[in-house]
C-alpha cells in the first residue's frame, strides 16, 4: 500500500493511491464555474466525480473507453461517499470536479478511487471535516478477507464482496455495498475488519499529505 500527493502538477489538487495491484490517480479541479448552467445551485457548490478505468487496466477484455453505466454509477457512489465531509456553501453556483483514472486494476477500484479522491481534495485546499478512506472486505468460501483481489472475487464457493467507505475519526459509514451473500453476524465481523483497515489506510493518507510539504 502506498500513496503520493501532488502527482498532477496542472491540477488544483492530485493524489495517487496504490493498494495491492490496484492503482488510482485522482485530480481535482475547482471550485470552478459550473456548466451546463442549469446544474448550478445558488445555495452551494456541487461535487462531480468521474471514474475511469483505462482500456488495458483490468483482467480479461479491453475496457471500452469513454465511460458507461458502471462508471457513471461508481461516480455517483463516490460523490455520496465523499459529500458528507464537504461543505461547499461558501462557493455557490460552482463545481468541484474530481477525475479518477485507474491505470492498473485488480478489484477494489471504487475504494481506491475514493481514497485517492479524498487526498486530492485535501491537496486542493478544500475544507473537509474528515479524510474518508475505503476498502473492500468480504467472505471467500469460509474465510473473511480485506481488500479482495479479482481472483478471490471470482471464487466459486460463495463470495461476498463488500466495499466500505468510512470516516476514520467517527467510524461513520459513507459507502456500503454488497455483491454476494453473508449472514448478519458475519457482516458485523467484516465491518470491524474494514474499520481497522481504514484506520491504517488513513495513516498512509495523512503521511502522504504531510510528505508533500517535507513533514513526516
Amino acid at each position: 500500500m502506498s500513496a503520493k500527493v501532488g502527482v498532477v502538477p496542472r491540477a488544483d489538487g492530485s493524489a495517487m493511491f496504490q493498494i495491492g495491484k490496484t492503482t488510482a490517480i485522482a485530480a481535482v479541479y475547482g471550485p470552478r464555474d459550473l456548466h451546463p448552467k442549469f446544474m448550478q445551485n445558488p445555495e452551494t457548490g456541487i461535487l462531480r466525480c468521474d471514474y475511469n478505468m483505462l482500456p488495458f487496466s483490468g483482467h480479461g477484455d479491453r475496457v471500452r473507453p469513454g465511460g458507461g453505466r458502471r462508471a457513471r454509477e461508481i461516480g455517483m457512489v463516490m460523490e455520496n461517499a465523499i459529500l458528507p465531509v464537504l461543505d461547499l456553501r461558501a462557493f455557490p453556483n460552482t463545481v468541484v470536479d474530481v477525475f479518477v483514472d485507474l491505470p492498473q486494476t485488480d478489484a477494489g477500484t471504487r475504494c481506491a478511487a475514493i481514497t485517492a479522491a479524498a487526498m486530492a481534495l485535501a491537496d486542493a485546499g478544500i475544507e473537509m471535516k474528515d479524510l474518508p478512506a475505503a476498502v473492500a472486505v468480504g467472505r471467500v468460501g469460509d474465510k473473511f478477507m480485506v481488500d479482495l483481489s479479482y481472483d478471490e472475487e471470482a471464487h466459486e464457493d460463495g463470495v461476498a464482496d463488500i466495499p466500505v467507505a468510512m470516516l476514520p475519526r467517527s467510524g461513520k459509514v459513507t459507502l456500503l455495498q454488497m455483491d454476494g451473500d453473508i449472514t448478519p453476524d458475519n457482516l458485523k465481523k467484516v465491518l470491524l475488519m474494514a474499520h481497522r483497515a481504514i484506520v491504517r489506510i488513513n495513516e498512509v493518507q495523512r503521511a502522504a499529505l504531510k510528505e508533500r510539504f517535507g513533514a513526516k
Binding site: 474528515d130 479524510l131 488513513n202 499529505l209
Partner: peptide, 8 residues
C-alpha cells in the same frame, strides 16, 4: 507543523 483534515 503540517496538519491534515480530520486531525485532532
Amino acid at each position: 507543523s503540517v496538519v491534515v483534515p480530520g486531525e485532532t
